[in-house]
Amino acid sequence: MLSLENISLELEVEERKVPILNDINLIFEAGKMYALTGPNGSGKSSVARVAMGIYKQTAGQVFYNGEDISGLGITERARKGIGYAFQHPARFKGMPVKDMLELAFKHSDGYNCQVLRDIGLCPDDYLERTLDNSLSGGEIKRIEIATLLALNPKVRIYDEPEAGIDLWSFEQLIDVIGNSHREDTTTVVISHQEKILNMVDEIVLIENGTVSMRGSRDEIWPRIKESAECSCRRSCRLEEDIYADCPR
């Protein structure tokens, strides 16, 4: 179980302290799936980054299975079983996909080429590819998710996993996230996507750096529907097939 208690965060931007999170209280239990949703810039990724130890909270504490991990760095938290798939994955000149997966595998208890197949990439085509600009946004994003699967952590935080992923892969992605979830894992997905919000046990709505609501899909969706929906939806009605496949 991962819990954030009274978490506040300020970040320094151009020598000015900017409040990002304000008194966040969240509990993520083992065996459950959660979605963090809310408008752009509301602080969803910052919550994940505080949990992972990338941002150091200004106030409050982070507990993992009852242990106060507030003072621990990224490495220690990763070794304890917290994993994070980044919204904008870093690129690495020269480093093959294979090496990245092996680095992830070193600290987990099981990995094979299956993780690449799971996210729709053929291992033969991708293991030797380098993680540089030769990969498209969708490819690098899928490899990021494969890396988290290879790491196989107890707490999995996916930061907008659907960003840059095409429609066909989106369905597959939802299956992968759902199938990799187990009784002893906690899955947290940062997303605006209706289909993702439909699959989780609980939705957390974050607005202006605070938790403004927690609840089921039916409770939350009407509140965020407008901002989550595509503004071009009407024009898509002309092409019903595309509209039908729209992940939103």
Partner: peptide
Amino acid sequence: MSLGLTEEEAEEAIISGF
């Protein structure tokens, strides 16, 4: 580091990949 490497190990892995 989010994969469990220390900062030094991460630096080494980046350089050796590069």
